[in-house]
Nucleic acid binder design. Structure first.
Lengths: 151, 151
DNA sequence: TTTTCTGCAAATGCTTTGCATGGGA
DNA sequence: TCCCATGCAAAGCATTTGCAGAAAA
């Protein structure tokens, strides 16, 4: 599947065009964000590159994530207390389903948000520019684990 | 309209039943949360009671909000960076429309979330227990202010 | 060589916790 | 009187910022 590589290349071109450099650390972070569907946190990104770059600081990861966010190449999913998760695979607003057990985040199929957004705009008078739709619950694995414990 | 008072009384009864006390500060915080539709932050609540209780600490407001949250009487709207906003008027999940200009939060009418939630559950295998739907944009007043500036 | 990037440490901002004092019931 | 609640101060955490040295281009 060429899509993932295309996405990575696109971001790399965009960085080059704007005069940013491609350090090995930046490239590693970039690959994770552009190619994984895991919606990783900064700590998770840091853990994933630890084998190759053991001294990479949280600050470096934060700075790179912020840069990509400001370029519109990464979507931040902030939560009240827990740390933010990042989506560089699909950086445009879309629904997320979040497991309260294991913390995994998946993308369900759902296409009707644009229509709903227009409806809300009409009802409230707001000019709506973005949205956020999250569902919280237990994934099937965590449901099973819970059943095991209850036995 | 008796609804607002009813809601306040209901919470007061619930607190009494559980052995919690009704300090004047707690009552003031409670009134704001149960009766206003402003979705205030802790800082805003503190500002609103300042005239009557000038020495009330943030900790006290946080403790009261947390207590009401744990009783299911207040809904917390957490954001990534900004401070949380609280809804004690309608503590059950419902859509919010948030102005990026002035920070106001309003409740649009929308009833179809239960159906959507079931659809997502079927598609993903999650057992969904809660959700969050936010729209971001500019309220009509902030749209007008923006136009004034652009002239 | 120039300028950006990294990574340490310090700073920030919201929220929570600990604890002595105050005050409902 | 008995505990719970308040409010100060300190601690916690995620994130941001400052800066000197490292390293892309």
């Amino acid at each position: 599947m060429a899509t993932k590589k295309d996405r990575l290349d696109r971001i790399i071109q965009s960085l080059r065009k704007k005069g940013y450099r491609l350090s090995p650390q930046r490239l590693a972070i970039l690959k994770i964000l552009a190619q994984s569907r895991e919606h990783p946190s900064v700590a998770q990104i840091r853990a994933m590159i630890k084998a190759d770059f053991s001294t990479t600081s949280p600050a470096t990861v934060y700075k790179n994530v912020s840069l990509l966010k400001s370029m519109g190449e990464v979507l931040e999913l902030g939560f009240g207390n827990k740390s933010s998760r990042y989506d560089g695979y699909n950086p445009h607003p879309h629904p997320h389903v979040i497991c309260n057990g294991c913390g995994r985040i998946v993308d369900p199929e759902y296409k009707a948000m644009a229509r709903l957004s227009r409806e809300i705009s009409r009802k409230t008078g707001f000019r709506i520019t973005s949205h956020r739709l999250d569902f919280f619950g237990l994934c099937s694995e965590c449901q099973n684990k819970k059943k095991q414990i209850e036995k």
